[in-house]
Design a protein around this nucleic acid. Structure first.
Lengths: 207, 207
DNA sequence: TAATGTGAAAACCTTCACAGCT
DNA sequence: AGCTGTGAAGGTTTTCACATTA
């Protein structure tokens, strides 16, 4: 297997495998076939096998995949074996909900700093994190080893904030603002946009 | 143009067009070319023209698209000209943030009821909405004309809650729980899953 | 026997390139 | 002159189907 560029769609599915395998493991399962895994995720076995084949040969013919082994491999591939440090910009309602969200930490994503442009917010404590002024951003990113910026500001401020984060040195951005931001190549963007999700849903619901 | 099945990827992009066109309109622009629109959204003009061509001929050769007209057409296509009524299940931290989120209403998505399985929550008021017991779900969906269910319960409860919602008659589900739920065909699912987004991001950040 | 890994085929999606309209 | 709408080409992703191996 020589290393052809892995399609992004494949990378987007790997975390799904990690999650399903983790559940199976917690349920006490040792081995799983692409057929069974596909059943859990509503995917074809062929797609699962093909996806995994981009990275190696993890299964045993006639048996399937050892869950513990495959999980370890997938976590390595995705870079989930280390802690990832993020900073949050915007501590309004949404930002507070994000800081208090308990789903990130168990997966190794830690919010280590929070910023806001409002003087009212600066210096306050949100979920145990002190809110800092935007001016401190670059310094904190460097000293606290932050690689991910989480954007929870109003739409109008999103692009400038993202520019500042990128300038400050983050490599990835998780954006909750309802905009389609522009970032330099090499910076990885992920958008969380429930309104967009609903607006495409209604296409199938109308009538 | 005869009506071939529209690819889902195309439907997923239409709300992006709606958003960009709305911004342009607010900025006072009357007409836009696929070239210009592509600039805003980092897409090729050809893709935009092809996407729109699935639904009709909205532009004028030599000029471009009249924004007001195209917006109206796209909103019709997506079903955004009417109000969509949703109910929320789960009024923990996440559920509260969703109820208080101000981004839904301006786009015509209204949360008209909230449910929780915890006796402590039932009867309380969250953001002006009374929290009802799960037993009332089917009745409320029917009487209040609810078509969308929003799921904000812990992972373990997500699938049963989704089954109840579907049984109750919702046609679409916006799921915030970190699971890959199974729904009957005909039910439209959208997942909001920031952890999954981060876990695919790190693939590109590791090293 | 049972299930992987994988070339090849099929399906799907994007981009090209240009006729045709304003 | 400028830009749309669209067949056709090109590229990508999924599925098939089977040789191979435990």
């Amino acid at each position: 297997m020589q290393s052809i560029e892995v399609p992004e769609v494949v990378v987007l599915r790997l975390p799904l495998y990690v999650r399903a395998l983790t559940q199976l493991q917690m349920a006490g399962t040792d081995v799983v076939s692409s057929q069974q895994l596909g059943g859990h995720l509503q995917m074809t076995p062929a797609q699962i096998r093909k996806d995994l084949s981009y990275f190696g040969r993890f299964g045993k013919q006639g048996r399937g995949y050892n869950i513990q082994f495959l999980l370890k491999e997938l976590r390595d591939i995705l870079g989930l074996t280390r802690e990832w440090r993020a900073c949050l910009v915007g501590v309004g309602r949404l930002g507070r909900a994000i800081i208090n969200y308990t789903g990130f930490a168990p997966e190794g994503f830690t919010i280590v700093a929070a910023f806001d442009s409002s003087d009212d917010q600066i210096g306050t404590d949100v979920g145990g994190i002190e809110v800092l002024p935007m001016g401190d951003l670059a310094k904190i990113i460097a000293t606290k080893n932050v690689t991910i910026g989480i954007v929870a500001v109003p739409a109008i401020q999103a692009q400038p904030v993202i520019d500042i984060l990128v300038e400050g040195g983050v490599k990835g951005i998780l954006n909750y603002a309802p905009v389609a931001p522009q970032v330099p190549i090499g910076i990885v963007m992920r958008n969380i946009d429930p309104v967009l999700s609903l607006q495409s849903m209604t296409f199938y619901l109308k009538d």
